[in-house]
Design a protein around this nucleic acid. Structure first.
Lengths: 218, 218
DNA sequence: CCGTATCCAATAAGATACTG
DNA sequence: CAGTATCTTATTGGATACGG
């Protein structure tokens, strides 16, 4: 007597938080959305950057998220012709949720920044954790290179934005693993850990804009 | 080869969002925390205001949340001498997460404000959804009465705060079910739906500070 | 290889009955 | 009232197999 599509676990609760949990609260959902925040990815990209997710669960989550309007699925134009998943406009509006959670969790005594991390996570964390006051000191364009993937970050008028691709001409190009970027930005590791081309002084200043907040008194 | 206490489902991910999900992401956890945001509650209070939660799951969640430092458990002084649960200071710091989720979900086409809602949820939603600009127009103290339970809301310097208890002398006292409060604040229902004692004009102004945002174009 | 489907063992959640 | 105990159902994750 099972009707897997009809019986869904709901919270019968008008509270907005409860409704958000119905849309985003299943295991992996928010992390899948995170990976799509900076542009389309393929199924296997997602598997790589979500360590531990099984193909079965990823398939399910993507289908549910598409049905809920959080995710869109389409095929890239030829010659690529591969299927990709992307966040919908509405899905992207959930970024403040990721940020608020990230900011809160950074103060947790149990937070371990030495675990593996994805490229998208690091770049989003920059958007979350940047010192907005000091970011206004100067402008600049930074290119982040993770193997084949390239993102462009822009600081202008005190705001940091980041997008996939190598659109703008960068002042400085930074290459390295996401974990190394974390080390330099939050862990006080030397800039030399990364491949740096261009305005190293800008890079140094950029990384000085980040610091993990103090932990709550455990 | 099972070690039920050691093998926990984790996300091996340094991303702050992932860590927040490990602390708050299990089913019911965030809603239990919500119910504790305005002060201590007993086990059966929580069961009443979380429709559908089973005693088993509530017991589990409270124990996990206590172990993680989100919740504290203590016994009220005599003559009450009953055991209650409350959010820890750090747990209370998660309120921005509830707010961000609530604000996002309010725009969802699937959000149904006619479902049952708890007293705490409504009061927290006021804190989330109040029109900050217009709240500065005047000050006031509102008492909210839900049967036996009483909360006091204060508007001062454009900010709305709310706390359990009947501490301050109110300008107006509002009595009714949480659902009725939702109807008046967000659904355009008449103030007369509530029991009103005192400055009804203040109440009218207060409820004019709320409006659900427009839905995303589905 | 890319994406999905199928099978299975281990957990988690839900319902209900029960106890100090 | 404040939980436990027990049983049933659902979801998860891992392995594997399949079709393009």
């Amino acid at each position: 007597m099972k009707r897997p599509d009809e019986i869904k676990r709901r919270y019968d609760d008008a509270c907005g938080t409860a409704h958000a949990l119905e849309l985003l609260g299943e295991r992996w959902t928010l992390l899948v959305l995170r990976e799509l925040m900076l542009g389309p990815r393929r199924f296997s990209d997602l598997r790589e950057d979500l360590p531990g997710i099984s193909a079965r669960v990823l398939t399910q989550r993507l289908a549910e998220m598409e049905a809920k309007g959080l995710v869109v699925r389409y095929r890239l134009p030829p010659p690529a012709s591969v299927q990709v998943y992307d966040a919908s406009d509405w899905g992207r509006e959930a970024e403040p949720i990721l940020q608020t959670m990230g900011r809160w969790a950074a103060r947790s005594p149990g937070h371990d920044p030495s675990l593996p991390i994805s490229a998208v996570s690091v770049l989003l964390s920059f958007r979350t954790m940047i010192d907005g006051e000091r970011a206004g000191e100067r402008d600049g364009v930074l290119r982040f290179v993770f193997g084949e993937r390239v993102y462009t970050g822009t600081i202008a008028a005190g705001r940091f934005t980041v997008a996939a691709g190598a659109d703008a001409a960068p002042d400085v190009t930074l290459a390295g693993a996401p974990e190394q970027l974390v080390g330099v930005a939050y862990g006080g590791a030397p800039l030399e850990l990364l491949g740096v081309e261009g305005d190293a002084e800008l890079a140094r200043w950029f990384f000085s804009l980040f610091a993990l907040p103090e932990k709550v008194t455990g």
